[in-house]
């Protein structure tokens, strides 16, 4: 019990004193996950829109596959990417293994299904009456899509936040693709895993508190934004 209390006290100290290692890991984590979320959003929002607005054969099957991939185990994503970018893999020549770029790609693979799926469901929640009103008001096809996207903006933004949450909190793919190299690819989750196994609880707890703090701040921002949007 004492160990835990002491761990907490030391962890708070590490955070308050802006311990260089803690800060470095935190900043790297944020950079990688923000980049992955931004790039995945760039790909997923139009993709979700396309799937939603276009009628094609097998559309329902595609949506089911996307939704299944929500729960893609991170180690499977890691393994899949590892095979692709390892030296012997088809993209081995790009030298992405054990790099931050490789980690960004791994996180993108994890969150693209969530972002795409939630974009589709956000757009589906715009009711028929609203679509008909938009058409009735003389919107072009492009205007219609833009207006519907705008109406669904809070739900879409929530999807982005959720995706960021998954990206920054995953550990399997980050470990396999990044390799947890100190000063290079060590992020919050991999560092917590490593430090815990090494018995350095204060550092683990400090990084854990930061990880939770990031989640709180992001969700609080989303909550405030939604409240403003709705009132």
């Amino acid at each position: 019990m004492n160990e835990i209390v002491e761990g907490f006290i030391k962890a708070i100290d590490l955070i308050i004193t802006l311990d260089p290692e803690v800060m470095e890991i935190t900043i790297r984590s944020l950079q990688i996950s923000l980049a992955a979320t931004a790039l995945a959003a760039l790909a997923s929002l139009p993709l979700g829109g396309l799937i939603h607005f276009y009628e094609f054969r097998g559309k329902k099957a595609v949506i089911v596959v996307i939704q299944t991939l929500y729960s893609l185990p991170t180690v499977i994503a890691g393994l899949f990417l590892f095979l692709l970018i390892s030296r012997a893999g088809p993209f081995g020549f790009m030298g992405l293994l054990f790099t931050q770029e490789g980690m960004v790609i791994a996180q993108m693979i994890l969150i693209i299904p969530i972002l795409t799926g939630l974009t589709i469901s956000a757009l589906s929640n715009i009711d028929k009456e609203m679509r008909e009103t938009i058409v009735s008001l003389g919107a072009s096809w492009f205007d219609s899509i833009l207006t519907i996207m705008k109406e669904a903006r809070f739900a879409i933004f929530a999807a982005v936040v959720l995706a960021f949450g998954r990206a920054i909190s995953e550990v399997g793919a980050a470990m396999m693709i990044g390799g947890n190299i100190r000063g290079s690819t060590r992020v919050l989750t991999t560092a917590i895993a490593l430090e815990t196994s090494m018995g350095d609880f204060p550092l683990s707890i400090a990084l854990g508190i930061i990880l939770l703090g990031v989640a709180v701040v992001v969700n609080l921002g989303l909550f405030i934004m939604q409240q403003r949007g709705l009132s």
């Binding site: 938009i134 058409v135 009735s136 003389g138 919107a139 072009s140 096809w141 205007d143 219609s144």
Partner: peptide
């Protein structure tokens, strides 16, 4: 059903 029709407008 597609909108932006000159008649629709």
């Amino acid at each position: 059903g597609k909108g932006a029709d000159p008649v629709g407008r």
